[in-house]
């Protein structure tokens, strides 16, 4: 709180650092040196110095410490983020790329038998392992739609979605298909074995089978549209 002092001429209370200015302006005839004692003048000098200090935002002594602290935190955070973001993706525990596709024949949610072997040959097959309770799978639906359109509505790449979740059912998978508005093959694997055959650590997991029946690509978790194309295109183009 600012120090107030009574003006020795008019008695009005004025801030100490403004007292000299007040005397000169309001009481020009009053001799400042005669009105103010040496102690008053010293107090005014000290008050002015305090006022001057608050107009300078930085106190040099601490500024470097705070800046250093901020920069150190930023550097530590960036290093940690780079470290964690460059860790390898979780490995499947089995290296499937290059291996023959594991064949299966399972009825889709419309009751039509889907024989993988019968579909191999004309075009690559993209199998998405998902579950209806997987929100990442829901968020991937838009990407899958765009990919389906990009690949000629199934002309260039065949899309198959498989749920091996014990928490799903034919009805649940059908409902999911309708909810995400997909029109490719949806399967519920009631044996729950297909996902483990394909070493899926979770959902969504993608398996891209080439026209010769080998697993060309295997990857886990969501990818954006352009990354998906960069993975699938080389296989499509042979």
């Amino acid at each position: 709180m600012a120090t107030m002092r009574e003006c020795p001429v008019c008695g009005i209370r004025v801030k100490l650092e403004n007292l000299e200015g007040h005397l000169k302006k309001v009481h020009p005839k009053a001799k400042v040196d005669a009105v103010l004692s040496e102690d008053d003048k010293t107090d005014i000098k000290i008050a002015k110095k305090k006022v001057k200090k608050t107009t300078q935002p930085f106190e040099d002594r601490e500024r470097k410490r705070w800046m250093a602290a901020g920069l150190v935190i930023v550097v530590i955070v960036v290093v940690i983020m780079i470290f964690f973001s460059t860790l390898p993706e979780g490995s499947p525990g089995c290296d499937l790329e290059g291996e023959d596709a594991i064949l299966f024949t399972i009825g889709d949610v419309d009751g039509v038998a889907y024989d993988l072997n019968a579909h191999i040959g004309s075009k690559p097959i993209l199998i998405e392992f998902f579950s209806t309770g997987c929100s990442a799978c829901v968020s991937m639906a838009a990407v899958m739609h765009d990919l389906y359109e990009y690949y000629g509505w199934g002309e260039d790449v065949e899309f198959v979605a498989v749920s091996s979740s014990s928490e799903d059912s034919v009805a649940a998978v059908r409902e999911f298909r309708d909810y995400v508005n997909s029109n490719w093959t949806y399967i519920w694997d009631s044996s729950f074995g297909l996902a483990s055959d394909y070493c899926t650590p979770g959902t969504p997991t993608f398996v891209l089978i080439d026209t010769d029946g080998t697993i060309a690509k295997w990857w886990y978790k969501t990818r954006d549209y352009n990354t998906m194309i960069s993975i699938i295109d080389p296989v499509v183009q042979g």
């Binding site: 390898p88 979780g90 978790k221 954006d224």
Partner: peptide, 23 residues
């Protein structure tokens, strides 16, 4: 707006997608 864009490993407790794309 671009699911899967994060550079993020799936190691142990870390799974960015489960958090950013989850309910």
């Amino acid at each position: 707006y671009n699911p899967g864009a994060l550079f993020c490993p799936e190691e142990g407790l870390i799974d960015c997608g489960a958090v950013t794309q989850g309910e």
